[in-house]
Design a binder for these strands. Structure first.
Lengths: 253, 253
DNA sequence: AAGTGGTCTAGACCACCCC
DNA sequence: GGGTGGTCTAGACCACTTA
């Protein structure tokens, strides 16, 4: 094994991919110890700093874990194949699960921002806002209602797009927007008549309401989404990290 | 300004703290550009690699952002004071919000692990498991029911602790357990009779169900929690990151 | 004492932005 | 072309674990 082909990919990303694929292919199994850093450096023909950048990334992804005087270990358990906190579009989630995503567009138009909408997006009230409201379906079963609001100037021509078939995230990427992070709040509420009708539920049944503010890499708000999932048809996954408790390893392995 | 006192703290952490404090004190204001890396290196008397490790950390924390040919900028907006995905105990959350947390203990005993419980924790069925079930209250209002299961060998003597007043997280820390991450699933469900009674709700009202598997820094499962929040009395916060979309900066600043 | 991860350095070259 | 961030290197020393 060896990297450094003539990819434009940074070396440390190639190293990440290589280690990931060795785990996927079973060469490295959960719980196994990796070769020492200095040895891996030689095998991959990269410097130790670069290797460590790759290893650090893999720890963030929950793929590896380190123990000071002991070595690097492949993470064990179910968390292994799970996605970390990635911001995934509905279409991407569907693809990953092997299902077909589709949409029914309820609303796709530009209207002035209300006071609340303006405040969330840090823009002036009345600013033209593109409203996109869709019922999201998996294999034709209604899963959620998604209402997204984007400053119209960021997405010219979006009222002409047919979002029943096109992916919003793809169109955003084409428009040059770079999503970085979605700050989200999650709560459980009762389905009102409107939601119940579109999700084919009884009024009062639980729905999972997720409100997101998506920002770009300069922390500028790009858009807000309110997604209401049918309680018995969807489940969110995330993880919480314990902020640095100065981990001083005691047992394990 | 200069660091490198005789702290045992790593230099890059000292750099993080210093920059953080300069922002807090208003020397660096949101939107401002930082001095070039090479200049900062001289001022702080550290190498560029070390400085960049600090800057990278500050980006993760949402404090700074970088633009390739332009420089480093202090992040703008409200997201600045928000906490990231920290794994916080109920008591800590309460304290942060200025409320008083308390508990009513429904169950505190050791019992053998069922098949399901054993699988979640990667232990043998029948292994003694400490079960702690509590109603969690804020200012004496019932907010949630929390059922936590911990292998009994990890927490000797816990059946003697009075968890109506003592914090579970504090006791876990005293027992030498180091929580690293909680993998969580979240869904909306209807309150059953048991939950409804203890949370003073009507049966069928929405509850937010969060199931967590908490692991230590070697990815060993420590315990599982199932927390059922009254839908109208609690709201979760988290964020999702867009995994590397090869950010190619276009606009901004 | 040997093995292994954690931190740190000085210097190099490339890619991008702006004049 | 000059300024700035992004990647990469080779080598050093320290801290923790294990024996």
């Amino acid at each position: 094994m060896s990297i450094r082909s003539d990819y434009p990919e940074p070396l440390w990303i190639q190293a990440v991919n290589l280690i990931n694929s060795e785990i996927a292919s079973g060469v490295l199994k959960p719980g196994m110890r990796l070769p020492p850093e200095r040895e891996l450096c030689q095998q991959l023909n990269i410097s130790r700093v670069t290797l460590r950048k790759a290893l650090t990334k893999l720890v963030e992804d929950g793929v590896l874990s380190a123990s000071h005087g002991r070595g690097w270990y492949v993470a064990t358990g179910a968390a292994n194949k799970e996605w970390p906190n990635s911001l995934e579009s509905f279409s991407e989630t569907a693809e990953r699960m092997g299902l077909t995503a589709s949409s029914e567009v309820l609303r796709s138009e530009v209207a002035p921002a209300s006071l609340d909408e303006a405040e969330e997006l840090s823009i002036a009230p009345g600013t033209p806002l593109f409203h996109l409201e869709r019922v999201r379906l998996l294999n034709n079963v209604p899963i959620a209602i998604d209402l997204t609001r984007i400053p119209a100037e960021l997405v010219p021509g979006f009222t002409e797009v047919n979002f029943a078939t096109d992916s919003l995230y793809e169109k955003l990427a084409e428009a040059g927007l770079e999503l970085l992070r979605a700050d989200s709040t999650i709560e459980a509420r009762e389905a009102d008549e409107y939601v119940a009708k579109h999700l084919v539920l009884e009024v009062g049944k639980p729905v999972l309401v997720m409100k997101q503010l998506v920002v770009d890499n300069t922390d500028k708000p790009l858009f807000t989404s309110t997604i209401q999932y049918s309680g018995d048809r969807y489940r969110l996954r995330t993880f919480f990290s314990r902020s640095n408790a100065l981990s001083r390893t005691r047992r394990g392995h």
